[in-house]
């Protein structure tokens, strides 16, 4: 199959137009296999990406570029009960997930 997604890269451009990830700790909710994560994680200080789908997270961990391994953490969790303390993140990103 020769599917192309967003060949003009509009999604990445819109994300960067809406928020500056530089030096920020980002919580990504509904990361799935990490497709969106790879678009911005290079800019962020740290990314905590979560999804309740453990199979999708396994793919995300496998696909994670080596350069991002120390910066991106994938966590199995639902947004209804976030396993984090108060005021931990600078940015929350609802990734096709609300």
């Amino acid at each position: 199959m020769t599917l192309q997604r967003d060949p003009q890269g509009l999604e990445r451009r819109m994300l960067n137009r809406f928020v500056d990830f530089s030096g920020k700790h980002v919580l990504e909710v509904g990361c799935g296999e990490g497709r969106l994560t790879w678009l911005y994680a290079d800019s962020a200080r740290r990314v905590t990406a979560l999804d309740p789908d453990v199979d999708a997270l396994r793919v995300a961990r496998t696909d994670c570029p080596v350069r991002l391994e120390s910066r991106v953490t994938f966590t199995g969790a639902s947004a209804r009960h976030l396993p984090f303390p108060h005021e931990k993140f600078d940015i929350a990103l609802l990734a096709w997930s609300l």
């Binding site: 999604e11 819109m14 994300l15 809406f18 928020v19 919580l27 909710v29 969106l36 947004a79 976030l82 984090f84 303390p85 108060h86 005021e87 931990k88 993140f89 600078d90 940015i91 929350a92 990103l93 609802l94 990734a95 096709w96 609300l98």
Partner: peptide, 14 residues
């Protein structure tokens, strides 16, 4: 999400 965001935090809904 509001609870874990800092006081000047930003939420992006895509």
């Amino acid at each position: 999400i509001r609870r874990v965001l800092q006081s000047d935090g930003v939420l992006i809904d895509l």
